[in-house]
């Protein structure tokens, strides 16, 4: 399992691995926001937490179609399915690799982009915390979507259509935490709910993803 994780990380960092694509997308979306809503810093500071959460979510979505499709095309998935690893573990490791190469970098650059959007000073900690807790759920849910659409030739658009509604609860609670953090209001409830969603998806969804993958492999 560690070998699989290391291989996926190595692949992501090698040329053409797509690492940094999500980051660049996140950066561009954030830069485009002031162009579209105007440069008033008071307005930007209100919408900053929501924009950053949405940007992170879309950047996450962008890399999902490579998550399993590459392994599918070159036959690695067939071979992994006949290997002594349980498919649930394979899927979980894939999610983890996706989070490490996409989610975690997003969390780390989010404060920088927060500065550009006049995020209030109180908001930075909670922005990072909410993203740190929320993005793993995005990766795990995304893996499920990728597993469903893995056999399809042009599955990218369908993948977005399937995954985005599933992202709603995570987005709502995550952005709520970031927003309340920025305005300095009570945020314990959404934070707990966000953590709950992440824990539950990590615990349960890999089973669904593996089941779906088995169906697609036969």
């Amino acid at each position: 399992m560690i070998a699989l994780l290391l291989r996926d990380l190595k692949l992501a960092f090698r040329a053409g691995g797509g690492f940094g694509l999500g980051l660049a997308f996140f950066l561009i979306v954030t830069v485009l926001v002031p162009f579209s809503v105007g440069p008033q810093s008071s307005l930007l500071s209100i919408i900053a937490p929501g924009v950053l959460w949405l940007g992170a979510l879309l950047a996450c979505l962008l890399s999902l179609d490579r998550l399993l499709a590459l392994d599918w095309e070159d036959g690695s998935l067939d071979l992994l399915a006949t290997a002594p690893l349980p498919l649930e573990a394979v899927v979980a490791v894939k999610s983890l690799a996706h989070w490490l190469t996409t989610g975690l970098p997003l969390v780390l650059v989010a404060p920088l982009l927060g500065v550009m959007l006049n995020l209030p000073e109180t908001g930075f900690t909670w922005l990072v915390v909410s993203l740190l807790i929320g993005t793993p759920a995005l990766s795990v849910i995304g893996t499920f979507g990728a597993a469903i659409t893995v056999g399809l030739k042009r599955g990218g658009l369908l993948l977005s259509l399937l995954v985005l509604p599933l992202y709603v609860p995570t987005l709502i609670f995550g952005a709520e935490v970031a927003r309340r953090g920025a305005t300095g209001t009570e945020l314990e409830t959404p934070l707990l709910l966000l953590a709950g969603i992440t824990t539950a998806t990590i615990a349960l969804l890999p089973f669904a993803s593996a089941a779906v993958l088995k169906i697609n492999l036969r």
Binding site: F144, I148, L162, P165, L166, V168, P169, I172, F173, E176, T189, P190, L193, I197, L205, A208, A211, V212, I215, N216
Partner: peptide, 23 residues
């Protein structure tokens, strides 16, 4: 098979969304 699993998982997330939206 795939739509059935999606329906199952979707149901759970639909209920979650309902509570999230209320909140």
């Amino acid at each position: 098979d795939l739509t059935s699993v999606l329906c199952l998982v979707g149901s759970v997330f639909a209920i979650l969304s309902r509570y999230a939206v209320n909140f």
